[in-house]
């Protein structure tokens, strides 16, 4: 198990507080190993990339069956559609979806590959990006 500097600092501070003047090598060892054992949450030093929402953006010339094809592929990947916005600008079709990918048994790269295969078949563009990038760029 890997610890971030932040977590190590927390463990150390807890140990200092608990032991105070009584610290001996054996006692320190005991307290630290207990802290390590109870440290179950994964490292949260960054805006977690495992939260599991992705944003799918697709463009192309409008034609029948685009939404159906994309949604059925998403269904096959076992992802949950949480939001969907679709607009037509003349003959140009744009759709943006927010997907929960936690329930999928595929990982991010595999879903991405499935989507790019579909994009090629349909002759449209599909981008799948993790939600964090939008949060980072557009929210103060």
């Amino acid at each position: 198990m890997r610890f971030s500097e932040e977590e190590l600092r927390k463990i150390t501070l807890n140990a200092i507080e608990e032991l105070g003047d009584k610290a001996s090598p054996d006692l320190v060892k005991k307290v630290i190993s207990r802290a390590v054992a109870t440290q179950t949450t994964p490292s949260q030093t960054t805006a977690s990339a495992t939260e599991g929402r992705a944003i799918l953006t697709s463009f192309g010339m409008n034609k029948p069956g685009i939404v159906a094809a994309i949604t059925s592929e998403i269904g096959k990947c076992n992802c949950d559609i949480q939001d969907l916005t679709q607009k037509l600008m003349d003959d140009f079709f744009t759709m943006i979806m927010i997907l929960d990918i936690n329930s999928s048994n595929l990982d991010f790269m595999q879903i991405q590959e499935n989507m790019s295969r579909l994009a090629e078949e349909m002759n449209i563009k599909i981008y799948l990006q993790h939600e964090d990038i939008f949060r980072a760029m557009h929210r103060v």
Binding site: I55, T57, D83, T85, K87, T94, I96, I98, Y127, Q129, E131, I133, F134, R135, M137, H138, R139
Partner: peptide, 17 residues
């Protein structure tokens, strides 16, 4: 969290164009 249509398109525009 809610994202505006334009925000998402802008990000795509930045990376793609």
């Amino acid at each position: 969290m809610h994202y505006e249509f334009d925000e998402i398109l802008e990000t795509i525009k930045m990376t793609e164009i």
